[in-house]
């Protein structure tokens, strides 16, 4: 038992060894220690989804997990969506549909949408709304966000 622990995680494809305080959340460690600030902090109670990341491919609220829990896992954040500076089709679709207003919720929306499309490549509107129900957007660009996800799905392979 300890209050600091070294963990090994693959973050956006790169293997990392990080010393973390055991009581720090994954969100804290991503933002403060790894300086991956694309993942956002809002409610810190699992309600808004701004902090959504993928852990071993599944969407999770990084504000509700301790960083030590991802030891040995693979974490993808919004910074990991584009490859070599090229936006993913999902990101492109968000731009085309005008889905990002203030943009603060968008990292989380993208991660939740990404997870949704890997499970259901061609979702219905209802499936998109259900899949993104854990991501609040106060700019309430829900219509455009949904449209973006559907456009990305139509575009086929992401």
């Amino acid at each position: 038992m300890s209050d600091m622990l070294q963990i090994e995680v693959k973050v956006n494809g790169a293997q990392r060894l990080i010393d973390v305080a055991v009581h720090h959340t994954l969100l804290d460690v991503l933002r403060d220690d790894l300086e991956l600030t694309g993942t956002k902090e809002c409610c810190v109670v699992g309600e808004c989804g701004a902090c959504t990341v993928l852990v071993d491919g599944r969407a999770m609220n990084s504000c509700l997990m301790l960083a030590v829990e991802v030891d040995g896992s693979e974490v993808t954040t919004v910074e990991g969506l584009a490859t070599d500076g090229r936006l993913s089709p999902l990101q492109e679709a968000f731009l085309d549909a005008g889905a990002a207003q203030c943009g603060f919720c968008i990292s989380g929306q993208l991660m939740a949408a990404h997870a949704l499309l890997s499970r259901i490549p061609h979702p219905t509107v209802e499936e998109v709304n259900e899949g993104l129900a854990g991501n609040l957007c106060r700019c309430a660009g829900y219509e455009q966000i949904t449209q973006a996800v559907l456009m990305a799905a139509e575009g086929g392979d992401r």
Binding site: K40, L87, Q91, L95, G98, A100, G103, S107
Partner: peptide
């Protein structure tokens, strides 16, 4: 397309 949209979909926008 939104000016500043790129930063908003890549997490690079600095709030």
């Amino acid at each position: 397309q939104r000016v500043g949209g790129y930063g908003r979909v890549t997490g690079l926008q600095q709030y």
